[in-house]
Measured scan of single mutants.
Amino acid sequence: KLLSSIEQACDICRLKKLKCSKEKPKCAKCLKNNWECRYSPKTKRSPLTRAHLTEVESRLERLE
């Protein structure tokens, strides 16, 4: 599967780190437990900047 097509777990399953069936409108866990089942939009991760990478590398060197 391509990364862009990976389905996201519902908010509660993601928060509780449960295996989500990803069914809509309610996944199996939410249906069974009568929880409100919501699927928040995916958040875009910002790409690493060179400055951040350099900072992490220098912190790693100090720890070694």
Rank of each mutant, 00 (worst) to 15 (best):
K1I: 05
K1E: 00
K1H: 11
K1C: 14
K1P: 15
K1W: 01
L2W: 13
L2Q: 15
L2I: 12
L3W: 11
L3N: 13
L3Y: 13
L3G: 13
L3C: 14
L3A: 14
L3M: 12
L3V: 12
S4I: 13
S4Y: 12
S4K: 07
S5G: 11
S5R: 11
S5D: 13
S5H: 13
S5I: 11
S5Q: 11
I6C: 13
I6G: 10
I6W: 08
I6K: 09
I6S: 12
E7S: 10
E7C: 12
E7N: 11
E7Y: 06
E7H: 08
E7Q: 10
Q8D: 05
Q8M: 09
Q8V: 06
Q8G: 06
A9G: 11
A9H: 06
A9D: 00
A9N: 01
A9Y: 00
A9L: 00
C10K: 07
C10D: 00
C10R: 09
C10S: 01
D11R: 05
D11K: 01
D11S: 05
D11Q: 10
D11Y: 08
I12C: 12
I12F: 15
I12G: 11
C13F: 02
C13W: 06
C13G: 01
C13H: 03
R14D: 00
R14K: 09
R14H: 04
L15R: 08
L15S: 12
L15Y: 15
L15N: 11
L15V: 12
L15M: 13
L15Q: 11
K16Y: 03
K16R: 04
K16T: 00
K17E: 01
K17M: 01
K17I: 06
K17Y: 04
L18R: 03
L18W: 10
L18T: 09
L18K: 00
K19Y: 02
K19A: 05
K19V: 06
K19L: 07
K19N: 07
K19H: 07
C20I: 06
C20P: 00
C20F: 07
C20T: 05
C20Y: 04
C20N: 02
S21H: 00
S21I: 03
S21V: 01
S21Y: 00
S21W: 01
K22Q: 08
K22P: 06
K22D: 03
E23N: 14
E23H: 13
E23I: 08
E23G: 10
E23F: 09
E23M: 11
K24M: 15
K24T: 15
K24P: 07
K24E: 14
K26F: 15
K26P: 04
K26E: 10
K26V: 10
K26R: 14
C27I: 02
C27R: 08
C27L: 02
A28F: 09
K29Y: 05
K29P: 05
K29E: 02
K29F: 06
C30P: 01
C30F: 06
C30V: 05
C30Y: 05
C30I: 07
L31D: 14
L31G: 14
K32E: 09
K32D: 05
K32A: 09
K32L: 07
N33T: 07
N33V: 04
N33A: 10
N33Q: 13
N33P: 01
N33K: 10
N33F: 09
N34G: 13
N34V: 11
N34D: 12
N34T: 14
N34Q: 15
N34P: 02
N34E: 15
N34R: 11
W35M: 12
W35Y: 14
W35Q: 14
E36Q: 10
E36Y: 06
E36C: 13
C37G: 06
C37F: 06
C37Y: 09
R38H: 13
R38L: 15
R38S: 13
R38Q: 14
R38I: 14
Y39W: 06
Y39S: 06
Y39A: 05
Y39C: 02
Y39H: 08
Y39M: 06
Y39D: 03
S40P: 01
S40R: 05
S40F: 04
S40H: 01
S40I: 01
S40V: 07
S40T: 10
S40K: 01
P41G: 06
P41T: 04
P41Q: 05
P41F: 02
P41N: 05
P41Y: 05
K42A: 11
K42R: 14
T43I: 15
T43W: 02
T43D: 08
T43K: 05
T43E: 15
T43V: 13
T43N: 07
T43Y: 01
T43L: 13
K44I: 15
K44C: 09
K44P: 15
K44Y: 08
R45V: 00
R45Q: 09
R45W: 02
S46I: 03
S46C: 03
S46P: 09
P47F: 03
L48A: 01
L48Y: 10
L48R: 04
L48V: 01
L48C: 05
T49E: 02
T49S: 02
T49I: 05
T49V: 07
R50A: 02
R50W: 05
R50I: 04
R50Y: 07
A51H: 10
A51D: 06
A51M: 10
A51V: 14
A51L: 09
A51G: 04
A51I: 10
H52Q: 08
H52G: 01
H52F: 06
H52R: 08
H52D: 05
L53S: 01
L53A: 00
L53G: 00
L53H: 01
L53P: 07
T54Q: 09
T54C: 08
T54A: 06
T54E: 09
T54G: 09
T54R: 03
T54I: 06
E55S: 12
E55A: 14
E55I: 09
E55Y: 14
E55W: 14
E55P: 02
E55V: 09
V56M: 07
V56N: 00
V56H: 08
E57C: 05
E57I: 02
E57D: 09
E57N: 00
E57M: 00
S58T: 12
S58H: 15
S58E: 15
S58N: 13
S58G: 14
R59K: 11
R59I: 01
R59D: 00
R59M: 07
R59W: 02
R59V: 01
R59Q: 11
R59N: 05
L60M: 12
L60Q: 03
L60R: 00
E61P: 01
E61H: 14
E61A: 14
E61W: 13
E61D: 13
E61N: 10
R62M: 12
R62V: 13
R62H: 07
R62T: 11
R62S: 09
R62Q: 11
R62N: 06
R62I: 14
L63A: 04
L63E: 04
L63P: 00
L63Y: 03
E64F: 01
E64T: 14
E64V: 10
